[in-house]
Amino acid sequence: MTKLKIGVLSASVNAENKWSQFLQSEFYFNYKRNIAAIAGTILIILFLLMATVGPLLVPQNPYNLQEISILDAYKPPAWAEDGELRYLLGTDSQGRDILSSIVYGTRVSLFIGITGMLFSCIIGTVLGLVAGFFGGKIDSLIMRIADIQLSFPATLIALFIMSISGRGIVNLLIALTLVGWVIYARTVRGATLAEKKKEYIEAVKVIGLPNYKILFKHILPNVFTSTIVIATIQVGSFVLTEATLSFLGVGVPVTRPSLGLLVKNGYDVLFSGLWWASTFPGLFIMLLVFGINMLGDFMRDELNPRLK
């Protein structure tokens, strides 16, 4: 009976309906009136555009060694004395256009932030579901590991992992996943425990639905909102963590600089007065993370007041 009802419900809700429902929701009502959340969304969209179609618009592919010439090294921004219009934000040590590098770097930063988040989210959610649903030894093992890990700051764990595994995008993703899964596991476990006690789960259990189906079809959708809030904010924090690691020299490889590595590259000449090479990439990190946090903050307040 219950199974049937749920099935019918989910089938009947088509996309259009959902959208109009969304537009009438309280969430959307509050969203429209929250300037920070809107600004955050705009920033995120701009950055996503930059990472996807940006490379088609910028004057240079900074990874293509044929295109860059060292003779153009350290050109100041266009408005400064000696600046050139084709290098709007100036160039770096190899004659790479800073604006183009930022566009390509945003791509790397966002890729790492989002992929790292996805891995953490999937692994953490699965472990949290398993721990919460089955309880017992599995639960205490997973939660004990989570406890131990939470007593150490994530940046420090990631720094340690990177310093022994060496720089590289794969290593970074591994490090970020290893520090990122815990928060999902904890939240999802809590939500699962709460959900498990509810009547409808008891009901589907009675009708003999296999465990995995209960987990993924019935419990997972209910822990989805808290997960999505965490995920949004985590992308921002991963972008920052990656930038910090790259700055310390244990992040992405030099041939594919992220925004953080661009800052580090420019750092070497910042105090010599060549300020543009590090100032602009840093500003872009700040804007990106700020945008994510503005939206994430709003979402947390709206969707999950418990997490405040």
Partner: peptide, 21 residues
């Protein structure tokens, strides 16, 4: 509140560099 959100969003190392600069 917005400033505090910005504070969380700042790349720590970059702030240090800028302060020195």
């Amino acid at each position: 509140m917005l400033a505090s959100l910005l504070g969380i969003s700042l790349p720590n190392f970059w702030v240090g560099m800028m302060l020195i600069f």
